[in-house]
Design a binder for these strands. Sequence first.
DNA 1: GTCTATACGGGGATAGAC
DNA 2: GTCTATCCCCGTATAGAC
Lengths: 175, 175
Amino acid sequence: MELFSRSGFHAVSLRDIAAHAGMTHAGLLHHFPGKDELLIQVLTRREELAFTQAYDPDDPPALTLSKHLDQLALNMRTPGLVGLFVKVSGEASDPAHPAHDYFVQRYRTLRAGTAELLRTLFAQATPPVEHDPDAVAQQLIALVDGLQTQWLLDPDNVDMRASVVAYLTQLGLDA
Amino acid sequence: MELFSRSGFHAVSLRDIAAHAGMTHAGLLHHFPGKDELLIQVLTRREELAFTQAYDPDDPPALTLSKHLDQLALNMRTPGLVGLFVKVSGEASDPAHPAHDYFVQRYRTLRAGTAELLRTLFAQATPPVEHDPDAVAQQLIALVDGLQTQWLLDPDNVDMRASVVAYLTQLGLDA
DNA sequence: GTCTATACGGGGATAGAC
DNA sequence: GTCTATCCCCGTATAGAC
């Protein structure tokens, strides 16, 4: 995770990673079938960590939203990892890519969870928001992903949190 | 362009490309200093083509907007190329990447042009739209980029054009 | 100016010894 | 479970033919 985050996927060799773990690259490949699979496991692990830290089913919906916004700010500490997700989710669009199924599933789950959260928030807002939670969920996730791309390239000219809050306000939610 | 679009940047070798052009890889490298630079020139070329086809300074702003929406639909014919842009814009977040400056400049130009278009459209709308054109431009571009990521992974569950139109309608523009 | 031939270092992956 | 040795392909650089 450390090396991929710092330098990206292709810039790091299995020999680098193995050396940091005190092995040769062949030894590393005993534990992982290939570099791609190693990457997927790193990404999966990372997302599980972030999720279990941020999500608590006992939280009220408004707090969950606020925690997700904080997570956005936190991500800005690790541009390497953010870039890795952006890059790999692009690569993974190829159905033959080893991470393809993982990412397809990831976005479906993400959309469903976000839509569920929005449904509650829309109903609780005063006045209630009339938009379709599923459509907004897709837009919201797209907005965050796209902002990350722009922010990675030009950090000083992009304020991800502010832009997302503006979008939510525009919908009629106070974030 | 064809090969990069089909398989992505790293999956294609200079030897592949050269073979398709009826040369050896060394011959190819006579015309391009390296693989990275070849990629940049392909991307630049592609964007110039799309731009000069779609943009006419004599068009009224509403037509320009509509043409851009059509371009979105057109992009859905070449998922490889869309994926390439997504992928490379992620890679290029590294300041050492050969396409870094190109992409930073691309997004600045894109934001400025979009903001300008939105400024006019906002003023002409009935009633006039009160949002900040610069902020909306950033959101709009992010939305399109993010939708592309989701669409690449799961084409059947993402309608890029509809989502963008919904966003514009939300703002108070009829697209 | 255009290209081929060739070589170098490094990458991911595999086979088999310990 | 980890190693060494090896394989083949990659991007790149150079020398030289036409």
